[in-house]
Amino acid sequence: MIRFRDTTVVYPGDVRALDQVSLAISPGELVVVVGLSGAGKSTLIRTINGLVRPTSGRVEVDGREVGTATKRELRAIRADIGMIFQNFNLVKRTSVLNNVLMGRLHQVPGWRTVLGLYPADDVEAAMRSLERVEIVEKAYVRASNLSGGQQQRVGIARALAQEPKVILADEPVASLDPPTSHVVMRDLQRINRDLGITTIVNLHFLDLARAYGDRIIGLRDGRVVFDGPGSAADEQVFEDIYGRSLTADDVLEAKAEL
């Protein structure tokens, strides 16, 4: 259970990224967060694992308060939350497997990680998460030698290797072409269904949001302006969220036709 209570985030320069957000996300949900860039999507996701601390209000993950957690507590909270990034954030100069093993860092004693001696169980977990995203054959390939879609699947595998309860995905398909975007979204959907991992995805494209989001949360200027099932989010709703009429840029398929 993830709970926001009157969460507000103000960045230096008086930028209000989140404004009195209150939300509850139940275990196993697949939530898509939509909004224009700058609406606070990334901030919302990053407050859940404490990469951004709220200025006021509370953020709880399974009853543990994130905003005021100590460094040690925060590491424990983060260990249960996998994160997927727009730019994949892989260490490009090392192997795919080493990147996925990064997901095991919280489980492995420090001296072992320093020497690069991961226990066999952790290597096994990393391999299995690579198998789940069907890219295990690349385990010993340098990350820089993979295509964008493959790199994002490694990013997903890294999150899975944490055996997380929650997965956060920050614009996971923004750097990918349309067909690859669907592959990655389907991977996320499958993981959510098969493993029951609560999944929160930031998206910009409304067709992707409607196709994959069981629940859609619309953000505008840091406020929640829509919260409902994907089926209820019609074009009118999106126009409200974006605060303007829709354009071809807002739809992945239309963009693909250009």
Binding site: A125, M127, R128, S129, E131, R132, E134, I135, V136, E137, K138, A139, Y140, L160, E163, K165, R190, I191, D194, L195, G196, I197
Partner: peptide, 26 residues
């Protein structure tokens, strides 16, 4: 807490075409 991801739940490929784990290169 979800279990470890296991290969049997992957629905999109049949066993025959599933990729093999590569050997660790020396």
């Amino acid at each position: 807490m979800p279990g470890l991801p296991t290969r049997t739940t992957s629905p999109t490929r049949t066993t025959a075409e599933r990729a093999m784990r590569p050997d660790k290169p020396r």
